[in-house]
């Protein structure tokens, strides 16, 4: 069975796109619709190998979610990458400070996304 990747995005179509790209590459997908759901998904699924998250989401945004997940020392090594729209250096900086390893600009290239997830979960 493939490694479990959590996809957090309030847009169902983005979740679907990410899910399809990663699913075809042999990953198992877990979806969450906002930051809050993302945090609880990580908490209840210890086998999550990596998180791909949007920044702008209702309830709890991506940045808050990263900080929240990273509060738990068990998740310190859990790689998180953010999907952002172009030209948000301030946001990206905050995300990295919060503990995200990197970001990919939307609309993303499926090949690149897969390569990234493969490298980070290797």
């Amino acid at each position: 069975m493939g490694k479990l990747v959590l996809v957090v995005d309030d847009s169902a179509s983005v979740r679907q796109q990410v899910g399809m790209a990663l699913g075809q590459a042999g990953f198992e997908i877990l979806e969450a619709g906002d930051g809050k759901e993302g945090v609880s998904a990580v908490a209840s699924n210890p086998n999550v190998a990596m998180v791909v998250a949007d920044v702008n989401m209702p309830n709890m945004n991506g940045l808050e979610m990263v900080s929240e997940i990273k509060k738990n020392p068990a998740n310190r090594a859990l790689p998180i990458i953010m999907l952002t729209t172009e030209g948000q250096p301030a946001l990206i900086k905050k995300a990295k400070e919060a503990g995200a390893v990197g970001w990919i600009v939307k609309p993303f290239n499926a090949g690149q996304l897969v390569a990234t997830v493969k490298k980070l979960t290797a």
Binding site: G102, N109, Q112, A115, K119, L120
Partner: peptide, 11 residues
């Protein structure tokens, strides 16, 4: 060097 080089460069 967390992301693949091409991906990181593309950002």
């Amino acid at each position: 060097d967390m992301l693949p080089t091409e991906v990181a460069m593309d950002q």
